[in-house]
Design a protein around this nucleic acid. Structure first.
Lengths: 341, 341
DNA sequence: GTGAAAGCGCTAACAG
DNA sequence: CTGTTAGCGCTTTCAC
C-alpha cells in the first residue's frame, strides 16, 4: 500500500542503497541523482519506515511516558510539555496512565519493551522499583521526574518539594498567621517532603503546631474539603491552610466558604503546583509554582542525551519552586491577631 | 542487549520457528516443547519485538492521536479515555498536540506514517482535509472525533452540538430568563452548531435576540470575561449567558462577579463539556455534558474495528448531550422579571 | 510436531 | 559516485 524504498529505487532507476543514502543524507551522492531521488520520493509520497530502520540498529525515535493520570491537570501539563519537547527533538511519545496500579505498571513496561522504545520517563509515583532495575539492566535509558528514588542511580528532574513546603509556610507566617495547618496528599514521597518543609518553617518561626494541624488525605476536592471542615471545627481553628496541591486547595476554599469565611479576608489558602486550576478558581490561588514547562523539557533533554550516549554520569536536577502570589492569601487582620493575642 | 528469538531458541534447543509458534500460539507444538520454551522466555525476560513482527506484515499495535492541546481539560480527558480503551484493546497511543498549527498537523501525520501506526484519530479542529485524504488513500484507517467533515466519508463519533446548544438555551429559558446571551468559541465548526441550537431555541421560545447577544471569541478565560463585560454593559444586559465551553464560562463568572452580580441569584451561567472545571469552579457550573468517556471509548473501538477490517461501511455516531444542573443557574427572581416587564 | 528458508524494508560495509 | 549483499528479529509457507 505505502511505497517502499524499492519502489523509489525502481522508479528513479537507482539502487536502494542510493535511495537510503539520500534519505539519511550520508555517503557520497551525485547532485543530480539526489535531486531525482528526492523528486520521486515526493511524487510517491514516500515515508521511510522507522520500523525497518530501527530493526537495523537505529532508534525507534520513541519514548515511553508513564504517568499516574492524564486527567489531573498537573500531569496533563507536564505531559504536554514533554510531548512538545520530544517532538522538537524528533521523538514521539507513547503515553501510559498507570492509575497507580502495579499491574498496569508492569504491563506497560513490558509493552514499551516490546515496542523497543529508546527510553522511558516515569513521572511520579512509580511503585515497583524492581521493574525499573530490570529496564536499566536491559540497557534501556530511564529517567524520573517528580519523584526521586535515592536507592537507584537514575536521571532525575524534580522540584525541591521541601523548599516549596517551607516557602509556602513561611509566606503564610510572614502575613501574620500564627495558626497554620497543612493538608497533604497521602502516601507520596514528594508530599512528605512538603510536610517537612512546613514543619521546619513552623519551628523556625516559633509557631506552635502539632499533629492535629497536619492532615494527610486522598488528593481529591472532597479530601481537602473534609480535612478543612475538621480543622475549622477545632477549638482554635487555623487562619490559614497550606494545601499540598491545587485540587486540595480547592477543597479547602470550598469548605472555608461553607463556614462563612471570606477568602482571603477571613482566611488564607496557599496551594502547590501552579496549574491551570490555580488561575481558574475563585479567588485565584496563591501557590507554590513548579516550573512545569521546564521540568518536562529538561527531563526529555536528559533522557535523549542518555539515549545518545552523551551522558557521563546520571543527572539529578532539583529545580527551585517559586511563590506566586494571587488572591487567596492576605495579611491576618488586626482583629484576628488581637483575638489570638 | 535485549534477548531475541534466537537466544530463546538456542537456549531451549529448538528452532526459531518453534519459538515463534509458541509466542503466537499457533501451529502445532508439543505440550512439553511449549512449556520448555515458555520457561526459557520467562528466564530470559524475553519480549518479542513488535518492530520485527510488524515488519513481516503484522500490526504495530499503535494508533496515533492528534489533538489540539493536552493542557485543555476537555482534550486531556478525552485523551485519557482513548488511551485507556486503546490499552485495553492491546494498542498503545502516540499523542501529538497540534496547537492548531497546520505545520504541525503535516509534520505529525508524516511522522505517524513513518512509524507505521495502524490507524489515526483526529480529535477536533483538524484543518487540512487534504492530509486526511492522503492517509485514507494510503490505506490508513482514520477516525474523527468532536468534529465532522461531511465532505469525507470517515468514521466519526461526536456529540450533538446543535442539540446541546438548544438544550442549554431552553433550560435558561425555562428558568424564566428572557434576555439570554451566548459566548462561543471562534472559528470552530462545533461551536457554530451550538450557536445554531441557541438561535433556534430562542426563536422557538419567542425570545428576542440579535447579533449583539452572540459573541464569538478566543476560547480563553479572558475571552469569556471581556465578552461578558461588554454584554453586561449593554443598556439591557442579559440575565443569563450560555458559554460555549467551560473555560469561557469561568470567564463569564469572573466578569459577572466584578459587576457585583451574585451567581446564581442575580445571574445565571451555563457551560458546555462537563470537564473537571465544571465541578471545581465556584459555584459549580450547570453545564451541557458531553459523554467524554464514551466518546473516547467508542472512537477507539470503531478505529480498531476498521483496522481489523471488520467494518462494512463507515460509522457516524452522534451522541446526545445531557444537561447537568449544578449551582450556576437559577430561576430568574420575581423582581427581575417585573423589571423586564 | 518441528525446522529450513525466504522475505518484510532498511542500513552499512564493501566492491567497483 | 553507485550498487551488491549481508543482516536486523520475526512470520510464514513448505518440507520432513
Amino acid at each position: 500500500m505505502q511505497p517502499t524504498i524499492y519502489d523509489v529505487a525502481k522508479k528513479a532507476g537507482v539502487s536502494i542503497a542510493t535511495v537510503s543514502k539520500v534519505i539519511n543524507n550520508n555517503g557520497r551522492i551525485g547532485k543530480e541523482t539526489r535531486k531525482k531521488v528526492l523528486k520521486i520520493m515526493e511524487e510517491l509520497n514516500y515515508q521511510p519506515s522507522v520500523l525497518a530502520s530501527a530493526l537495523t540498529g537505529k532508534r525507534t525515535e520513541t519514548i515511553g511516558v508513564l504517568i499516574p493520570d492524564l486527567t489531573n491537570p498537573f500531569f496533563a501539563e507536564i505531559t504536554a510539555s514533554m510531548e512538545e519537547r520530544a517532538h522538537e527533538r524528533g521523538f514521539s511519545v507513547v503515553i501510559c496512565s498507570t492509575k497507580d496500579s502495579e499491574e498496569k505498571e508492569a504491563k506497560y513496561i513490558s509493552l514499551l519493551l516490546r515496542k523497543k522504545v529508546d527510553g522511558c520517563i516515569l513521572a511520579s509515583r512509580f511503585k515497583q522499583v524492581g521493574l525499573i532495575e530490570n529496564m536499566v539492566k536491559q540497557g534501556i535509558p530511564v529517567a524520573l521526574t517528580s519523584q526521586d528514588i535515592p536507592a537507584l542511580n537514575l536521571n532525575t528532574v524534580s522540584v525541591d518539594d521541601y523548599k516549596g513546603g517551607y516557602k509556602a509556610t513561611a509566606y503564610l507566617g510572614s502575613l501574620g498567621h500564627k495558626k497554620i495547618a497543612m493538608i497533604a496528599e497521602k502516601n507520596v514521597r514528594s508530599s512528605h517532603e512538603r510536610i517537612k518543609g512546613y514543619v521546619d518553617a513552623m519551628i523556625e518561626m516559633d509557631l506552635p503546631f502539632d499533629d492535629t494541624l497536619i492532615r494527610e488525605v486522598e488528593p481529591t476536592v472532597t479530601g481537602g474539603e473534609q480535612a478543612t471542615e475538621e480543622l475549622l471545627s477545632l477549638k482554635e481553628p487555623p487562619t490559614a491552610i497550606f494545601a499540598g496541591n491545587e485540587i486540595l486547595a480547592i477543597g479547602v476554599s470550598r469548605a472555608a466558604r461553607s463556614f462563612q469565611l471570606d477568602i482571603p479576608n477571613d482566611f488564607s489558602v496557599i496551594g502547590f503546583d501552579n496549574t491551570l486550576l490555580a488561575t481558574i478558581c475563585d479567588p485565584p490561588l496563591t501557590t507554590i509554582a513548579q516550573p512545569i514547562e521546564q521540568i518536562g523539557k529538561q527531563i526529555v533533554d536528559i533522557l535523549i542525551s542518555e539515549i545518545n550516549g552523551e551522558l557521563g554520569n546520571k543527572q539529578r536536577i532539583m529545580l527551585p519552586p517559586e511563590l506566586v502570589i494571587r488572591k487567596s492569601t492576605k495579611e491576618l487582620s488586626i482583629g484576628k491577631r488581637l483575638d489570638e493575642g
